[in-house]
Structure formats: structure tokens, C-alpha cells
């Protein structure tokens, strides 16, 4: 019978070779907080599981060009404990911190959160508004991919056979800018986001917004950038009118489904509420810089 193989390569080259050579379904194991649940529920029956945590760099956070490179398998708890990352992109850290319980935090990685490609992944909207870039290594070498281009639909990614996300680069942040991520869940913890909203914005010297990114989670087949939401902020002082326009744009951009976690109308409404609330936090942070 086809039993699952478990491999622990010690280099990216070996990992890529293993994945590329496999005939059946392959899975990469980072924190395993999604993978093991899927295995136990027999939702997946992979031929090969490649544990990437013994590959150098996979668990490291390093400073680079004023930003940070985070190994794709780094557990959220490590990111949370990293003062530099927290200072630079607090919204990303907050989003990573929201992925499950403390126990889950000890394992769950932002690389895994990205590649699991759940539309509700908390860290993804936050990384997208931070203009994060994934380094993808595969049989044909390495490429840099904006985070928003990794997931293509629920459980689907743009990664080719044999490709691995090795790290995620969070760039330096412009002056007078701030980011934030908020999500709505029915309880205070332990739920999957019903709606998530990530915002980053940059102000000029007199407090006018010069650049903004707005990204929503759990309201479409993947995290979506809301161009109209950004437009609603750019050129304004991010006053109440601008925030209302942002909320309206966010709700208009949402195209959610009804499911066990929330209704279409609920998600649509709350997308606007969270975008507005997150923008206020981001604004405070931008002003504090």
C-alpha cells in the first residue's frame, strides 16, 4: 500500500529534489497546524511529507535592507518575540499572533499560513499591505513573488511542482507610516476569521495620506486588495469622511459567501467596519512615527 513518507532534508536543494521527484501528492511540513489536521481527518493522503524545519534559514529572522527576512517555517511565537519586526510592522505581528492559541503559535508559521491558501488566513492581508515578498525556490532556481500572488483560490497556490516558499521579506517601512490588522471572530480566540482587514498607510509631513494599501480576508476566494479603499484614503487627512468612504469601499469590494462561520451580509458589513477601525489604528501608528 502507499504509505506516507516523511523526509527531513537539510538543504533547499534536497527538499526541492524530493518534491520534484515524487509521483503522488506532496506536502510541505512547517508548523503542521493545518497539515496534521488535514491528515488526521483524511482530507489528504500525501505520498510524501517534507519537513523543512531542518533546512538552514527556515527558522531564522534576519535584518536585511532595513527590513526583515523571515524563514518560512518560523513559528509565530518567534515573530511575536522579535522586537525589531514588531516595531517595524506591528500589524503583521498582530496578525501572526492571531493565528490560533498560544499552542498553535508555538508551531504555526507565516509561510504555512500563506501556502495553506485559506481565504481566511490572518497573516496574509497583513503581509500584503506590508508589500511582503516571498522567495520561492524550485527546480528552476529562485524567484521573488509578491505575497498577494501566492494564493490563487481556497487551497490553491501559484507554486509549481517542487517549489517551496523559503522566506518572506518584509521591506523597510517609509517614514510616517503605520499598519494594522483586525479580524472578526465570534469568540475572543480560537476561531477562524469571519472577516479580516489589513491596512497600511503613509502620511506626508502635514498628515495627508500619500499612500495606502487595504486588504480584506475571508470575503473572497483569497485575500483581496481593495484599490478603492486605498483611493478613499490617499489625499485625505484620514478624517471621518475618508474613513466612511473606506468602509463603503471595503464593503463594496467584499464578495463573500454564506457559510457556517458567517452570512454574506454580515461579512460585507463587517468588512467595512473592520477596515475603518484598522485604518484608525494604522493612522495613530503613522502619526507616532
Amino acid at each position: 500500500m502507499d504509505e506516507m513518507r516523511y523526509e527531513t532534508p537539510e538543504s533547499l536543494e534536497d527538499a526541492v529534489a524530493l518534491l520534484a521527484a515524487a509521483k503522488g501528492e506532496t506536502k510541505i511540513l512547517a508548523g503542521g497546524t493545518d497539515l496534521l489536521v488535514q491528515l488526521r481527518a483524511e482530507m489528504i493522503e500525501p505520498e510524501l511529507v517534507v519537513d523543512v524545519k531542518r533546512i538552514p534559514g527556515m527558522l531564522d529572522i534576519t535584518e536585511e535592507d532595513g527590513g526583515f527576512r523571515i524563514g518560512a517555517a518560523t513559528p509565530s511565537a518567534e515573530i511575536d518575540e522579535h522586537a525589531g519586526v514588531k516595531k517595524l510592522w506591528p500589524g503583521v505581528v498582530e496578525a501572526a499572533e492571531l493565528i490560533g492559541s498560544v499552542q498553535i503559535q508555538g508551531r504555526a508559521s507565516i509561510g504555512g499560513n500563506l501556502c495553506n491558501a485559506s481565504p481566511a488566513a490572518d497573516s496574509v492581508p497583513a503581509m500584503i499591505v506590508a508589500a511582503a515578498v516571498a522567495t520561492v525556490v524550485g527546480p528552476d532556481g529562485s524567484r521573488e513573488v509578491p505575497v498577494e500572488d501566492i494564493a490563487t483560490g481556497p487551497g490553491e497556490t501559484s507554486l509549481a511542482k517542487g517549489e517551496i516558499v523559503a522566506s518572506i521579506f518584509l521591506p523597510a517601512r517609509p517614514a510616517h507610516s503605520g499598519d494594522a490588522y483586525l479580524r472578526f471572530i465570534p469568540r475572543t480566540e480560537m476561531d477562524i476569521a469571519v472577516v479580516g482587514a489589513g491596512i497600511s498607510l503613509t502620511l506626508d509631513d502635514d498628515g495627508t495620506c500619500t499612500d495606502a494599501k487595504v486588504c480584506l480576508g475571508a470575503v473572497a476566494e483569497r485575500a483581496i486588495l481593495v484599490e478603492d479603499g486605498a483611493k478613499a484614503l490617499i489625499g485625505t487627512k484620514v478624517d471621518d469622511d475618508a474613513l466612511e468612504n473606506l468602509a463603503a469601499a471595503a464593503s463594496a469590494a467584499a464578495r463573500p459567501i454564506d457559510d457556517k462561520r458567517g452570512t454574506k451580509e454580515f461579512r460585507t458589513h463587517v468588512a467595512g467596519v473592520l477596515a475603518r477601525r484598522a485604518a484608525k489604528i494604522a493612522l495613530d501608528r503613522a502619526k507616532g512615527n
Binding site: G32, T33, D51, P75, Q103, I104, G106, R107
Partner: peptide
């Protein structure tokens, strides 16, 4: 696990080598 709080149900046995 190595000083981090985790759920043992979400760790493969083979991982603790």
C-alpha cells in the same frame, strides 16, 4: 517541545528526533 508550548496532536512523532 524544545521549551515551546505546543499541542502534541499537531506534532508528528518523527519530528521530535
Amino acid at each position: 517541545l524544545d521549551g515551546r508550548l505546543v499541542c502534541a496532536c499537531l506534532v508528528l512523532g518523527a519530528e521530535v528526533e
